[in-house]
């Protein structure tokens, strides 16, 4: 080639097209090549230090013994160490004592949110807003009492209230009258006919003489604005009066069951959840 090369002395590769377009041999600076080789060497070092290509069914552990799961566990231990400061304090405290300390109750709310989502949110809603058939727990109405102990008891042991069905004992008109009476109660209306039926059918035995309910058995307060079974109003009241709640003899009876979490959750977790629930609405 050399003797035919029309452009001698310029270090071309001898590849020439169209008379004068030719490929020059200009190697990149040596140190650039060295950096490239150094990068290749680094790959080998990396393979030795870290777990990389699988050999058999497991990757070799690498010289440093580093694994992602180990790093994850170390990170978790770090978080646990930060939490321990608070957890140690609230371990010996009652729910009331936690509530009295703004810092600790803020910590409790922040740390137990996930537990609430996992165990409670499905029925009571992520913000305690309730769902049809499941009570709102972000308001100030408590079927079984709103103290921390009562909330803890509700979570640990569950709740299952009962209201008998009155559909077989009462006529349609009587149920209508009673339903209207109950709706009127919240608005403070007087209704002698309804009142008479309320007394005659022993509604007062559970709901009280003035209709304010009984938290010991979970009988609702009929005088407040909140309805246990949404959407409330005359139709809703009729349904409840006629078919009852958790009444075994009536297949149309409303169901209202709070499961017990005492076996699933520790008492410490239940205490924290009670604080969380308590703070949902106040």
């Amino acid at each position: 080639m050399a003797d035919k090369n029309p452009f001698p002395g310029e270090n071309n590769t001898g590849h020439i097209w169209d008379d004068n377009i030719r490929e020059l041999n200009n190697p990149i600076p040596r140190w650039w090549m060295l950096s490239w080789w150094a990068s290749c060497a680094w790959v080998l070092i990396y393979v030795v230090i870290y777990p990389s290509f699988p050999i058999g069914d497991k990757p070799p552990p690498g010289l440093m013994g580093w694994t992602q799961i180990k790093e994850f566990k170390e990170g978790m231990a770090e978080i646990e160490a930060i939490r321990a400061k608070y957890e140690d304090q609230i371990k010996g405290m009652t729910g009331e004592q936690i509530l009295a300390d703004p810092g600790l109750s803020d910590y409790t709310v922040a740390s137990v949110k996930v537990l609430f989502g996992d165990n409670c949110g499905a029925c009571h809603g992520s913000g305690g807003q309730g769902a049809p058939g499941f009570p709102v727990i972000a308001d100030d109405v408590w079927l079984y009492g709103g103290s921390i102990e009562k909330i803890e008891e509700s979570i640990a042991k569950g709740r299952r209230g009962m209201m008998p069905a009155h559909g077989s004992k009462l006529s349609e008109e009587q149920i209508d009258t009673l339903a209207s009476y109950v709706v009127g109660m919240a608005e403070g209306k007087e209704d002698p006919a309804g009142k008479a039926l309320f007394m005659a059918n022993a509604c007062f035995a559970c709901h009280g003489m003035t209709g304010t309910g009984n938290q010991a058995m979970g009988a609702v307060d009929l005088t407040d604005s909140v309805w246990r079974f949404a959407p409330g109003g005359v139709e809703s009241a009729r349904q409840t009066i006629a078919h009852g709640v958790n009444f075994p003899a009536d297949p149309k009876s409303r169901e209202a069951i709070m499961p017990a979490f005492g076996e699933r959750l520790s008492s410490h977790e239940i205490k924290k959840l009670a604080v969380y629930v308590h703070k949902l609405g106040q």
Binding site: G125, S126, G127, G128, A138, D139, A186, S225
Partner: peptide
């Protein structure tokens, strides 16, 4: 403003927002 629930009805008939 709290997204869930947007408001809560209280026993005295007032509306509470969080």
């Amino acid at each position: 403003h709290a997204r869930q629930p947007l408001y809560v009805l209280q026993s005295d008939g007032s509306i509470q927002n969080k």
